[in-house]
């Protein structure tokens, strides 16, 4: 390398370093506010996922229990006892019909009712088969008229429809998921209550939620608020449909969606 080149190169380096350092970093307040909003969204999503995972674990456990009971293998159930006892602490059961005495905990029973992290609706009895489908196809398969909201908050769109086939071959449950651009989810569940089935019940951990009574189109409903923005609304209609909606949105919006179901 010639001396002249080396000299020029040293100058170039100095100048480039000056240019690098010369940049004034703009005030970061706006930048932080944008990042903060993003972090809050990620935090909410992580919390949602955690809740979903625990909920799924509990739901799987109760489905497994149902399976073992159907198959007359009660001993298998004992493996799940620890989990059920743990999660049953601080729980409130909400029945949508009067609980009949024989449905309460039976001291002779081999099992107690299955159980949740925060909110778990009683799963359909027996084995279920889940299908991803379209709304049109679901309407042709299920045993009841599916309703959908005429009001949904801006930018939410129906993304998934799932139907559950009970052990007798009937489809009595539909899940509809509405997702917005940020990945926030509103889930609408519709479940037809069987005539001779046990009373519909949801179990809530009262230490983790605020419970409010409300009405949806003259039907008694329960609104469960866990975080300021995570809301679960559940009610039973006179035609024996149990409906529930949950998502991260304002209480008023949740009620508007519920009242717009047609």
């Amino acid at each position: 390398m010639s001396d002249e080149f080396k000299h020029d190169d040293e100058f170039l380096q100095k100048w480039l370093k000056d240019v690098h350092q010369d940049v004034d970093i703009p005030d970061g307040t706006q930048s932080w506010l944008e990042v903060k909003a993003g972090l809050d969204k990620i935090k909410a999503r992580r919390r949602w996922m955690k809740r979903f995972q625990i909920g799924a674990l509990v739901a799987c456990t109760s489905l497994l229990i149902s399976f073992f009971m159907t198959a007359d293998l009660p001993t298998a159930y004992s493996e799940f006892q620890g989990l059920i006892k743990r999660v049953q602490e601080n729980l409130i059961d909400i029945f949508f019909e009067e609980p009949e005495p024989y449905l309460e905990e039976n001291s002779n029973a081999k099992t107690s009712s299955p159980p949740p992290d925060y909110i778990v609706s009683s799963p359909p009895a027996g084995e279920s088969h889940i299908e991803d489908t379209s709304l049109e196809e679901a309407r042709g398969k299920v045993s009841f008229p599916i309703v959908s909201p005429t009001y949904i908050p801006a930018s939410y769109e129906l993304e998934n429809v799932r139907i559950f086939q009970d052990s007798d071959g009937e489809y009595r449950t539909v899940f509809m998921e509405y997702v917005n651009r940020e990945g926030h989810l509103i889930q609408l569940n519709q479940h037809m209550i069987r005539e001779n089935s046990s009373p519909e019940k949801i179990t809530i951990n009262h230490a983790m939620a605020v419970i409010k009574d409300t009405f949806i189109n003259d039907c008694k409903a329960v609104l469960i608020i866990q975080e300021p923005d995570f809301i679960h609304l559940e009610w039973v209609t006179p035609d024996h449909m149990k409906r529930s909606i949950f998502g991260t949105l304002a209480e008023e919006e949740m009620i508007l969606i519920a009242e717009s179901l047609k």
Partner: peptide
């Protein structure tokens, strides 16, 4: 990071931003 308060988060973000901005 999600469990620390917003003020501390902001300080971390500002320190990080100052570190990488010019590059």
């Amino acid at each position: 990071f999600y469990d620390i308060d917003h003020d501390a988060q902001k300080l971390v973000y500002e320190a990080y931003r100052n570190l990488v901005y010019r590059d």
